[in-house]
Amino acid sequence: MNIDANYVAYAFLNTAFIILISPLFMGVAKIVKAQAQGRIGPPLLQPYYNLLKLAQKERVYSNKSSAITKITPYINITIMIVASLGIPLAFAPENSGGLGNIILLLYLLAMGRFFMAAAGLDAGSTFGGMGSSREMSISSIIEPITIIVFAALAFTLNTMDMHQMFQTAAQEMSFLNPALILVSIPLFIVLIVETARVPVDNPETHLELTMIHETMLLEYAGRDLALMELSHAIKQTMLMAILINILVPWGYAREFTAPAVIIGMLLFLAKGIILATFIGLTESSMAKMRLFALPNLFIIAFFLSMLTILLEVFR
């Protein structure tokens, strides 16, 4: 594995791009939900203001908590940034840097989750414990679906590397491939589950019924909270990027030149806003499901992803 100038340029651009646009998608989904409920909603750039405000505030730690609480925000953002190198948003260099592997990506995300759940238990509050328990349970039972979805992608596009997957998808313009259309439904469910949205969780509240993701962050304040929220936003953009760049890879930069990259970025931004709107609409049109009704949703996703595998195997 050799890191060349192209890769370094890619690494900086991709990281900067994903950090910059991730809060925007959060904001878009919020506005769409507000509009659907007949409210005006916050300004589009509100997530950025929030992050800036939080960054300037002091941090409050519980007197019961330990070093785990202190290091988790840094570990989480680190993991998200390193993992995002494996997901080229608008252009992929020839050399994937060995970070594009989907199993590696999944386990990096799992590492972030491990620390977040541990931090939830750290302060000794019931809220945090409940959040960690539910988060780990839900993420465990979605895992087989995630793996089958990625196996289906690997079978269809013939690689385990995210960079090559995106390149192949962009070259073949394979958006009419029935396998890919079919697999995009479970992929969307995975996206909803992993980003803690309705019907699995509700990002707006930490009331008892939806105590999953937000409750783990309950003890965080100031800069730490900003880091946690930013990493959550980055995670959402990464999962969105997988869906976008495989299903609708129009305009994905095929060569590493300034105009192609800029067009790729702008198109990705547009597609991302559309997808975020769709996510917002899905959230508005559904009710939160009971925690123990979730396996039903997951079984649907499992069935569809298994169907994709059958399609590929018997083709």
């Binding site: 785990i68 799992a110 491990f114 238990l121 960690s132 780990m136 895992e143 087989p144």
Partner: peptide, 23 residues
């Protein structure tokens, strides 16, 4: 196998969190 390895993480978050963290 994927479910197994996700459960391992859950199991050890539980073991670590309950043993070492909290009160």
């Amino acid at each position: 196998f994927a479910l197994t390895s996700a459960f391992v993480a859950t199991c050890f978050v539980k073991a670590y969190g309950i043993m070492f963290l909290g009160l």
